[in-house]
Nucleic acid binder design. Structure first.
Length: 681
DNA sequence: GCACTTTATGTTTTT
DNA sequence: CATAAAGTGC
């Protein structure tokens, strides 16, 4: 196994006794170290299924499982557990959640559903407030607080009412037999903390743990890890403090610091050799990140050549930026005779992708979009998932409401309100309330009939979904609700067609999984919520990658364009917390505020660091002189991060002044050339 | 009471 | 400019 590893990597792989922290710089062969360490563990006598590898995304988990399978082929039953925190948490809750009063078929609500519930609890329609509350509650949950503690330490009136709403929200969720994403970590922690026998069982089950992207763990996840590893502390945490970009989600670098105090025997390894980027790119990255305070001293170096200079491209506005970048990319590929998949365009906000998509389409350049709205968030897919959720768990009121009203079947707001009110007063789910005799008096006979008919329909499907093969049941469900017809009626022809296409893709995917896992529709319905993406063959397609910086973490590309490098965009400068008390800002408050501000900038700087370290050979940064924000267009300044990289301006390398015209002319010439040769053929 | 049309409104990042 | 809540015909 030890071929092709440097000393640090080899040492990290071989250290098996006691806790271990691997600080792995960008491009230092982190995933390879993890997978080979797993193999080494097996070689050293650990049984494979007693090893657990925890990642943050399904994509990472999937990739790790694949890589592992390549270097050590194991029968399905004897493979290590490779899983995300959330899906591990889900597994734990499905097994033993009954001890917390959660039925096995509990639903997992997405944030839209939760927003709806919170709107009710807060008695508001102010979406900004709802978002804020959602975020705040999530932070509290990830910090392992409970509503009472949160209320007690609420800094102001708004926080106090959010804490109150949280309690109601929690009650509503348990009435629905549902959990949210945060609960998938939080409740397992509770489960283990309260039940020593379960903790014991899990410690037996998982004898060694490896945690990827450790810098992005939050307090709840840390707690879960501690409970799972126990006093034996047989684990390897792999992370990079310079790539911590999920602070807004409650992740805290404290977990990195705590590791050393909580585990005195902790052995530290640093992977500092970078195998990815050119020296030019790497040293710019080092200079940039040097502006952040250091937790662990770490300096990346590389044996690669100097490589191409980093280009900085100022543009007039977003439109010109997209045009310019797409043209450059196009010309670059022509010159190098490269492939599209060698290119990535990275941006801070999802909505920045739109202009780039337009220009790529215009130029007939294939692209894949990652990050942004996932397949599962599309309206038509959510419609179907609502049915599946309802089939799996008929107490799931949000799913009930969505399914009952799409397609339209004569059940409207008034009917649902009557049902909801009645269900609330009886403390049961809407589905259960539906068939109670007491409900009959609340509604006119006609409405009662329609809604009960819907209930019976769900019952019938439910019965079949638990017994019969998934495929036919799903087909019959779609036929029965005539979803295709409804799409055709309610959309214009083109969107109806693409939506139906999506529905078909989804069905194929469900059937494939059902066949692979031998699962019924009811069983499948339970795990859909935490799957963020179809296992699509994105990697195979020869296409330019459009991605948020967050979604690009862990990936690498020969040529990278980081767009929108402007003050306010990257670093993103959001509105200050709405609860910040304007009037009497004491020195203390403003000091705390400044600290918060600089923490935010540091995270943004790490984000930029992640962005530029995706690049292997060439890196281009662009920024706009003006940008239209909401309704107004404002002048923009180039990002401070460009200056911090200290790109040797003027004299060597940085061509800051290639105009769109030049780029277009160059591409035009190339195209003529290509057209000519094509015609000559 | 239900479905459709207009109108206000608002932007990080994701499991 | 795209989406979601409030208003208007059926």
């Amino acid at each position: 196994m030890s071929t092709g590893f440097n000393d640090a990597q080899r040492a990290a792989i071989r250290h098996l006794d006691g806790p271990c922290l691997v600080l792995a710089g960008a491009g230092s062969g982190k995933t390879r170290v993890i997978t080979h360490k797993i193999v080494h563990l097996i070689d050293s006598g650990f049984s494979p299924e007693a090893i657990g590898a925890i990642t943050f995304t399904n994509k990472a988990a999937q990739e790790m499982a694949e890589r592992l399978q390549k270097i050590a082929t194991l029968p399905t039953a004897r493979r290590p557990l490779v899983s995300t925190f959330h899906s591990l948490g889900m597994q734990m809750l499905r097994r033993d959640g009954e001890r917390l009063g959660l039925k096995r078929s509990f639903s997992i609500l997405d944030s839209d559903d939760c927003a709806g519930i919170l709107a009710g609890a807060l008695a508001t329609t102010d979406r900004k407030l709802i978002r804020h509350a959602q975020h705040q509650i999530s932070l509290w949950k990830n910090a392992l607080l409970d509503p009472e503690t949160a209320a007690a330490q609420a800094a102001n009136g708004i926080e106090h009412s959010i804490a109150r709403a949280w309690r109601e929200h929690a009650a509503t969720l348990s009435a629905y037999q549902a959990v949210d994403f945060d609960d998938l970590i939080l409740l397992p922690v509770k489960l283990l903390a309260e039940h020593a026998d379960l903790t014991q069982a899990w410690r037996e089950r998982l004898r060694y743990l490896l945690i990827d992207e450790y810098q992005d763990t939050n307090a709840a996840q840390y707690q879960l890890l501690r409970l799972l590893t126990g006093p034996r502390a047989a684990f390897t945490a792999v992370g990079d403090d310079d790539q911590a970009i999920y602070g807004w989600r409650g992740a805290t670098l404290d977990n990195l610091r705590r590791l050393e105090t909580d585990f005195p025997g902790l052995k530290l390894f640093k992977l500092e050799q970078n195998y990815r980027s050119s020296v030019t790119i790497l040293s710019a990255a080092n200079r940039l990140i040097a502006h952040n305070p250091k937790l662990h001293d770490k300096k990346l170096w590389s044996e690669h050549g100097v490589g191409d200079p980093i280009q900085v491209v100022p543009c007039a506005n977003e439109e010109a930026e997209a045009e310019s970048i797409v043209m450059r990319l196009h010309a670059h590929r022509f010159e190098r005779r490269g492939t599209w998949r060698d290119y990535a365009i990275l941006y801070r906000d999802n909505h920045q992708s739109r202009v780039f998509e337009q220009w790529l389409r215009k130029e007939n350049i294939p692209y894949v979009l990652s990050g942004g709205q996932s397949f599962f968030e599309r309206a038509e897919i959510r419609d179907l998932i609502a049915y599946l959720r309802l089939i799996a768990n008929d107490d799931d009121d949000p799913a009930f409401i969505r399914a009952a009203t799409t397609p339209k079947r004569g059940i409207g707001t008034a009917t649902l309100k009557a049902l909801g009110d009645y269900a609330g007063s009886r403390q049961v789910s809407m589905f259960e309330a539906l068939f109670e005799t007491g409900f009959e008096s609340r509604l006119a006979a006609r409405q009662l009939d329609t809604v009960r008919e819907f209930g019976e329909f769900i019952n019938r499907i439910n019965w079949r979904a638990a017994r019969e093969p998934a495929g036919p049941v799903l087909d019959d469900l779609l036929a029965a609700i005539d979803y295709r017809g409804w799409l055709a009626d309610s959309q214009d022809e083109k969107t109806a067609a693409t939506r139906w296409r999506n529905v078909c893709d989804f069905c194929d995917w469900v059937k494939k999984r059902a066949a692979e896992e031998g699962a019924t529709l009811s069983q499948l319905a339970q795990s859909i919520a935490i799957l963020s993406q179809l296992d699509r063959r994105d990697a195979e397609a020869d296409a330019v990658r459009l991605s948020t910086v967050h979604a690009a973490k862990g990936l690498e590309f020969p040529h990278v364009f980081v767009v929108g490098c402007e003050e306010g965009v990257l670093p993103h400068l959001g509105a200050r917390d709405p609860d910040a008390d304007e009037g009497g800002a004491t020195a203390e408050v403003s000091a705390a505020r400044a600290a918060g501000d600089s923490a935010r900038i540091e995270e943004e700087r790490r984000l930029m660091y992640v962005a530029i370290t995706r690049a292997q050979r060439s890196l281009t940064l662009s920024w706009c002189r003006e940008r239209s924000h909401a309704r107004q267009t404002l002048p923009q300044e180039p990002s401070r991060f460009i200056a911090e990289m200290e790109l040797s301006s003027g004299a060597s390398g940085v061509r800051a002044t290639v105009t769109n015209e030049t780029a277009r002319a160059r591409l035009g010439a190339l195209k003529d050339l290509l057209g000519g040769s094509r015609a000559a053929k």
